[in-house]
Amino acid sequence: MNKIKTIIIEDEELSRELIKNFLKDLEDIEIIKECENGFEGIKAINELDPDLVFLDIQMPKLNGFEMLELVDQSPEIIFITAHNDYAIRAFEMNAVDYLLKPYSKDRLISAVSRVRQRIAAGHDKSHPEPDRDDTINRLIRQPLGDNLNRIVVKSGTRIRVIPVDRIIYLEAQDDYVMIYTDEGKHLKKGTMNHFEEHLDADSFVRVHRSYIVKIDQVSMIEPYSRDNYIMKLKNGAQIRVSRKGLKNIREKFNF
């Protein structure tokens, strides 16, 4: 029988100890690495290609979700956190389970058996688990109303955390989005619609199918052709504005 290669990513030592302690009787679980933060986590996942990751959400600098955006592999994830407000996002990311601290040994073991089922089913992750317990179901129905306040990107082996304040504008590039900041540009996998939805609507505006601009970076807008406008930014960049984009801007600026 193949062992389930497992990584624990959690910034508190006692919390890691507890997971190990609960797992020690499970013979099919092999802990191959323990990580104290998200940066170590990315490296470990990419290098070791684990089957299962126990992941804390609240970690310094790079939280569990941001970390997952940056890994190439897709291991099974069991989130472990004291916060009950991340459950929706966790399951959106196709987590196997979401354990709320403090949790019992039985609870952890049932999460692991869910992992075994998933692995046995041949890594078919397209179907959400039907047998979530009531707590989880209740949590999933809670609305999630927070804006994105930072974006993590990978450049080579380095990981950058970009506070949204530093963004000047975003440009669509196929399956990627180019993020222009005051110190350079960064490529990130994602769609314009995703960013439009999650960036603070009071500071960002979609001006074109391919552009989202930070409102306070706009310097002027002038007509270009019949249905098109050109927007000049404070840093000198020029951006195309569509008719719909102009309408969006009008609404934001109230003119």
């Binding site: 508190e12 006692l14 919390s15 100890e17 507890l18 302690n21 609240q58 004291a82 916060h83 709320l100 601290k101 403090p102 949790y103």
Partner: peptide, 18 residues
């Protein structure tokens, strides 16, 4: 802060074993 409380309880949970 409830998160402080839950995290502390989790640490206690761990300490009871070790």
């Amino acid at each position: 802060n409830p998160h402080f409380l839950f995290n502390s309880l989790n640490s206690i949970s761990s300490l009871t074993l070790i």
